[in-house]
Design a protein around this nucleic acid. Structure first.
Length: 403
RNA sequence: GGGUAGGUAGCGAAGCGGUCAAACGCAACAGACUGUAAAUCUGUCGGCUCCGGCCUUCGGAGGUUCAAAUCCUUCCCUGCCCA
């Protein structure tokens, strides 16, 4: 039923940054094969940011690998901990959410995650199930198992403390709450990015306190965002969302720096190991083609081969040949006038956020109608027939006039 | 509880009675260039404008002054030191 130990370890270790402790994982897998019992693989989901991007996909793909090996995926939606706010990698206190928000986001998370995960051996749980019923006494007892000094070992806490930035007491409770999740489901393995190292290890300590066999921490690299500098995140707007349209995924992929091409292949695709080595060479010999291949691979993964081909054609048409896309959003403009001021059109269509903004766009030569650049802010535009507006490099809008 | 330093545009950070819609950096936006939505360079970057200006902003609320981001009072928030 289960693949052999070596087969399992090969797949598990692909793209993984660190496994702590590796020998414990080997032991767990051996026992699993012997008893024909799947391991429980835990992954915590942050319900405050329900839009999944390729950064999340790195760890989700790893979870999928475990599923493919016959193990059980357990998604823990932090609906309860979401109200605390996760301090991981953040220099500031995060805003807290309401329980309703986190529920809704959790559902959305599941829908997106199953683009990557199998729906066969998966379980999703909300951690309010066990955390909400804890009493204050329970919490104090839990908190007593950890010291402030050990909490401050964590990089970001230590940094914030050193820099004189505020750390709320409740943030110390977050790793403990996350550890309680591991206790509640008796996790064998917990997945996370390298930034989760501390939390994953606290899980081991607390499980041990509760007399359980500690989980193995499997950590994946943090995916660098499209800017090539910061980690991929929605708030930095350097992300590629898994639910984004084919052309968005294609275009954003092409905008990544060449040095990230290999990492993206390794961490966000299921390309064969042999091909992966070929990619390494191609990145150097023909970066343009390697990146276009990556972009097509990603679109195929989340949409289809057909969408991948179309996205590429469309991209070439707009950015290489500077033509207009084959489908353009329409905006119905209701007006009885025969013509309208360009500034008015820009603001009415929301292509500009204000009249000042619209004026700026025109003055800087960013606006064109039916291929002709508009340079005069007082230009009157005839509304006789449909017009195609272009603002900047990639915003197109077809204006349909309705009398 | 005592002392002390702060809260400025999306973020960081100058300004400390008029010349402040507020330096500078980042982000963002536009243009040029490019295999690219990258990099680089240039410009813009509160709102309205009859392009003369006008209006709303510098934690909140009051006040002093011809004039306040800048001074005073008070409230809220945060760091640090002492207890």
């Amino acid at each position: 039923m289960f693949p052999t130990l070596n087969e399992q370890m090969d797949l598990i270790k692909r793209g993984v940054f660190e496994i702590i402790p590796e020998d414990a994982l080997v032991a767990k897998i051996e026992k699993s094969i012997k008893t024909q019992t799947p391991l429980k693989i835990k992954l915590g989901c942050d319900p405050s940011r329900p839009d999944l991007h390729l950064g999340h996909s790195v760890v989700l793909r790893k979870l999928r690998h475990f599923q493919d090996l016959g193990h059980e995926a357990i998604l823990i939606v932090g609906d309860f901990t979401g109200m605390i706010g996760d301090p991981s990698g953040k220099s500031k206190t995060r805003p807290s959410l309401t329980l309703e928000d986190t529920r809704k986001n959790g559902q959305s998370y599941f829908e997106q995650a199953t683009k990557i995960l199998s729906t066969k051996n998966i379980k999703m749980l909300y951690n309010s199930e066990w955390l909400a019923s804890m009493t204050f006494a329970d919490v104090i007892a839990l908190a007593s198992k950890y010291t402030v000094a050990r909490m401050l070992e964590r990089d970001d806490f230590e940094k914030r403390y050193r820099d004189g930035e505020p750390i709320s007491v409740h943030e110390f409770l977050y790793p403990l709450a996350q550890a309680m999740d591991s206790v509640a489901i008796k996790a064998d393995v917990e997945l996370g990015g390298t930034d989760q190292k501390f939390n994953l290890l606290v899980g081991r300590d607390i499980q041990r306190e509760f007399g359980l066999d500690p989980q193995v921490a499997v950590m994946l690299p943090i995916l660098t965002g499209t800017d090539g500098v910061e980690k991929m995140s929605k708030s930095l707007d350097n992300y590629i969302g898994v639910a984004e349209s084919p052309k968005e995924i294609y275009g954003k992929t092409l905008s990544i720096p060449d040095k990230l091409i290999y990492d993206y292949f390794l961490l966000t695709t299921d390309i064969e190991t042999d091909d992966l080595n070929k990619i390494k060479e191609r990145v150097i010999t023909n970066p343009r083609e390697a990146k276009r291949f990556l972009a097509r691979t990603l679109v195929s993964l989340y949409w289809s081969d057909d969408d991948a081909r179309k996205s590429e054609e469309e991209f070439d048409r707009i950015f290489v040949q500077k033509e207009i896309p084959d489908t353009i959003d329409e905006f119905v403009l209701e007006s009885t006038e025969k013509e309208m001021n360009i500034i008015q059109i820009l603001t009415d269509t929301k292509l500009a956020t204000s009249k000042s903004d619209a004026r700026r766009l025109v003055e800087q030569g960013g606006v064109s109608i039916d291929g002709n650049r508009i340079t005069d802010v007082n230009q009157m535009i005839p509304l006789a027939s449909n017009i195609i507006m272009k603002v900047g490099k990639r915003r197109f809008l077809k204006i349909v006039t309705e009398k």
